[in-house]
């Protein structure tokens, strides 16, 4: 019914404009829902949390209410913010080194199968060994806790980036390689204009995984290493608040970690989108 009326109204403007209007409408509606639905769902979850506390009369030393956590975020900001900065610094420094190292080593590895053969065993051994098992050793060998944590986070973020980049650099269309050979491209030109762009989708995948893992590793390593004082990160604040039964602060630290994780996910997704949306299936909106 409504459809028929609409069509009748705009029939003077021709079929094309009718289509355009219809498309635009569903477009904005969908965009609106895309943004609203996630927020509504999170709000709903917080509401359920509050309901659970109120209905079951959960005492705040077992589980704080959302309001308590927000209050703790505000009052304990002086303690929490330096720790947040420490964790952020370790996470991003580790990710940056892992990116440079992973991409760099991948480029070296694919230059010759002999280099790859020589280095790969170490790569595999380090990758399959649970990081938490090496963390105590790193604490002993490294000059300070900070660099031990950094090393842990780096090792964990490094391998997904390395293995994705190696796969990407090797997955180049062989006809395109032939084409570059035909035009006498140098090794450097082939890398710059063909292999690196062709491996961008793999790089994006590695970046997403590595970004998430570097935060997880920074936290897990701190649990294992147990830093304290000025250099304490959010993981230490979590443990400390747990011991002191200061649950609002523990939840506040947890929420800061969650927000950091979501921000890293959003940032890496945005980077992937920027790199790929013009041409790659994974980032494209299909119209057919």
């Amino acid at each position: 019914m409504t459809d028929a009326v609409q069509t009748a109204n705009i029939s003077e403007a021709g079929t094309d404009s009718a289509v355009a209007i219809a498309v635009a409408r569903t477009g904005t509606a969908e965009k609106f829902l895309r943004i609203v639905i996630p927020f509504v769902m999170v709000a709903l979850a917080i509401g359920l949390w509050q309901l659970h506390i109120t209905v079951n009369e959960v005492p705040r030393y077992i589980m704080p209410a959302p309001g308590d956590v927000i209050a703790a975020l505000y009052t304990d900001w002086g303690t929490l913010s330096p720790s947040l900065l420490v964790t952020l610094r370790i996470t991003f420094l580790a990710l940056a080194i892992a990116l440079v190292g992973g991409v760099g080593l991948a480029i070296i590895l694919v230059q010759s199968k002999w280099i790859e053969l020589a280095i790969f065993p170490f790569a595999v051994i380090l990758q399959v060994t649970p990081m938490i098992a090496i963390a105590p050793l790193l604490i002993i060998y490294m000059p300070d806790t900070q660099s031990a944590l950094l090393t842990c986070a780096f090792v964990v973020a490094f391998f997904p980036i390395l293995s994705n980049m190696v796969a990407g650099l090797k997955s180049v269309d062989h006809n395109l390689l032939n084409l570059f050979e035909l035009y006498g491209a140098s090794r450097w030109q082939t890398l710059l204009y063909l292999k690196l762009p062709a491996s961008l989708p793999y790089f994006a995948a590695g970046l997403r995984i590595g970004g998430g893992l570097s935060l997880i590793a920074a936290v897990v390593a701190e649990f294992a290493a147990g830093s304290a004082g000025k250099g304490a990160g959010l993981a230490f604040r979590l443990l400390e608040s747990g011991y002191r039964l200061n649950y609002p602060r523990l939840y506040a630290a947890l929420i800061l970690l969650m927000v950091t994780g979501v921000a890293i996910f959003a940032a890496t997704s945005l980077i992937a989108w920027l790199l790929l949306h013009r041409w790659h299936e994974s980032a494209m909106k299909r119209e057919n």
Binding site: D173, N175, L176, L179, F180, Y183, G184, A185, Q189, Y193, L194, P197, A198, L200, R278, W279, H280
Partner: peptide
């Protein structure tokens, strides 16, 4: 055998760029 990440112009530019 085109480079999907490059525009039509850049694809044709390739031999000259090299």
């Amino acid at each position: 055998t085109l480079m999907p990440w490059a525009s039509v112009f850049d694809n044709v530019y390739l031999p000259l760029r090299l």
